Simulated scan of single mutants.
Amino acid sequence: MKILDWYILKRYLFTFLMMLLLFIPIAIMVHLAEKIGKIISNDVPFDEVALYLLNFTIYFANLLFPLFLFLSVIFFTSKLANNTEIVAFLSSGVSFGRFLRPYIIGATLVAIMALFLGMYLAPWASTGYNEFRYKYLSSSRDLQDTKNVFRRITDNDYIYVSSFDPKSKRGQNFTLEHLKDNKLEYKIFANSIQYIEEDSIYKLNGYYKRVYDSLGNVTVEEKRSMNVEFTFDVDDLTPVNYIAETKSYGELVDFIDKEKSRGAPNIGRYEVVKLKKWSLPASVFILTIIAVAVSSKKRRGGMGVNLAIGITVAMIYVFFDKIFGVLAAQSDFSPMVAVWFPNLVFGILALYLLQNAKR
C-alpha cells in the first residue's frame, strides 16, 4: 500500500507544481504586456520592475492557489481513470477511502504551505506589489478613504475631517472632541488642518476652541492659526485600502483591534482578509475531495469532460467567493459568513460527490 501512496502523492505534488510553473509565467507575460507602456513612460528602473514581478508572482499564486490545485488534481486523476489504473487499485481490494488517503496527505502538505504563504510571505509580497502599482501604474484616487473621516484616536478623543488629501497632508473642516466620564470637556474646530512633517505638529487654520466646565460655563478661544501636537500619526487618519493585505496575521489582529477602538468604518474589509488566511487552507481539502470524486470515473469524452466540469465548478467557487467578499467589505454583511459560506456550500457538495463516488 505504501507504493500506492507514494505513487499518487508524487503525482499530486508534481502536477500541482507543474500547474503553477505553467500558468504563472503566462500570467506574468500577460500582465507585463498590459502594463509595459506605463512602465516605460514612467522610466521605472529595471530592478524595481524585477522585484515587482517577483511580488506579483507570489501575490498571484496566493490569490488562485486553491484553483491551481483543483485543476491539477482533476488533470492527473482523470489520467489515472482513463488508463484504468483506478479500476485496478479498487479491484485489488482497496476501498475508495483508502485510495483517497494519499490525496489527503498531499492536501495537508499544500494546506500548510498555503497557511505559511497567507500568514507571512503573501503580506510581504503584497506590500511591494501594491506600492509599485499605485506609484507607477494607476491613480491613487481610490487608494484611501478620504471623505468624511471620523476616528477615535484615544479613549477620550474623537476627530473628524470632511476631506483629507494624503499627498499634501491637508484636511478640511476639522473637529476634535475631548470627553471625560462621557461628558464633553472641550471641542476644537478648524477650517483646515495641515501636518508639518519636519516638526511633527499640526497647523490649524481658523482655530476655534470651546471649553466646558463642571457648572456648564463655556470659555471660548479663537485664533487665526494654531500649532498643536496630537497623539495620532497622520497615516492613521486614512490608512491605505490594501493595508490589511500587507500585515502578517499577528499584526493584522492588532491592527483590527486598534481600528475598532477608533470607530473605523471599513472593519469588514480587514476582517475578510484575516478570515481568508484560515479559509484558504480549508478550501484545499474541500476542492481536493471534489476533484477526486468528479474525475475518478472513466467517462465518455475522456479527460476533456472532467476538465470542463472542473473549470465550471472552479468558476462557481470564485463567483461565490468574490460576491460574498465584496458584500462584507462594503456593507454590514457578516465577514464570517462571507468568507466561510462558499467553503460550507462546497464542503456539502464534496461530501455528496464523495458518497456517490464510493458506490
Rank of each mutant, 00 (worst) to 15 (best):
G310K: 07
S163T: 15
A61L: 06
L21R: 03
M226Y: 08
K180F: 03
L100A: 01
F232Q: 12
G206P: 15
V94P: 12
D332Y: 06
S91R: 04
P45D: 07
I86N: 14
L115Q: 02
L349S: 02
K223C: 10
F99G: 12
A81M: 05
D233V: 10
G302Y: 08
Y103F: 03
P265N: 05
L307T: 05
V149W: 08
V220A: 09
G216H: 11
V326D: 03
N217R: 09
Y249R: 08
S139P: 01
V73G: 04
A244D: 03
R101I: 04
D165T: 15
F285I: 00
K247H: 08
A111K: 06
F285G: 10
F116T: 05
V149F: 09
N182F: 15
G128Y: 07
L13V: 02
R262Y: 06
L54E: 10
P335D: 02
S163I: 12
G304K: 13
V337Y: 14
N191W: 07
V345L: 08
L204Q: 14
L204P: 15
F99Q: 13
S168R: 12
I286Y: 00
E229F: 11
L63F: 15
N266T: 05
V218D: 09
F132D: 04
S72T: 14
S248L: 09
G37K: 04
L176D: 09
A357L: 14
Y317M: 06
Y59N: 09
K2E: 03
I3A: 15
L20T: 06
I3N: 15
L354M: 10
V30Y: 01
N130M: 09
F56A: 03
L67T: 08
W278R: 09
I323Q: 02
D235R: 11
A282K: 08
V305M: 15
D145F: 04
K147H: 01
V326N: 07
D254H: 10
E251K: 02
E259Q: 11
S72I: 15
L143T: 02
I8T: 13
D257K: 07
G302S: 13
F23R: 01
I24Q: 03
L90S: 15
L51S: 04
P342W: 09
V149D: 10
G304M: 14
T15Y: 07
I105N: 06
F14Y: 10
A27T: 04
K79L: 02
D165F: 13
N191Y: 07
L71A: 01
T146R: 02
H31K: 04
